[in-house]
Amino acid sequence: MSGRFPLFRKRDLLVFLVAFLLAAAGFWRWIPSDDALIAVVEQNGEVVKRVDLERVTEPETLTLEGDVTVTVLFEPGQVSITNSDCPDQVCVRTGVLTRSGQSAVCLPARVAVRIEGENASGADGMTG
């Protein structure tokens, strides 16, 4: 002890750091995580299933019967249309969806699979 009392001691700094980290942790909890990947499956414009792809541990399929039968495959962090009886196979060729805003649509089956959130390109919509 030199008789002076520093504004902060190491111990105080530690307290401050812990408080800061706690606050930061709370802060991050509030920010919607970029990893939240909610896959939405629609048939005839109605939502038939919602799946949090982050919680998928085992591959899981969903078969949608109709005039055109479509199979949707949910995997950890991704979703795809793996099978469709449609002639054009546009939906299957779209491949695996991994980011928010992506979608695979089978028009003949009137089935759409999309990942919720803003478009992957940061756009409001897509033309073409």
């Binding site: 060729r93 779209t94 979608s103 756009a123 919509g125 897509m126 033309t127 073409g128």
Partner: peptide, 19 residues
């Protein structure tokens, strides 16, 4: 408004740029 233009050489989800 940002409107992505689809990449003719890609899939439904690929864009080549944004208007």
């Amino acid at each position: 408004w940002l409107v992505a233009v689809r990449d003719p050489n890609g899939t439904q989800n690929d864009s080549l740029g944004v208007l």
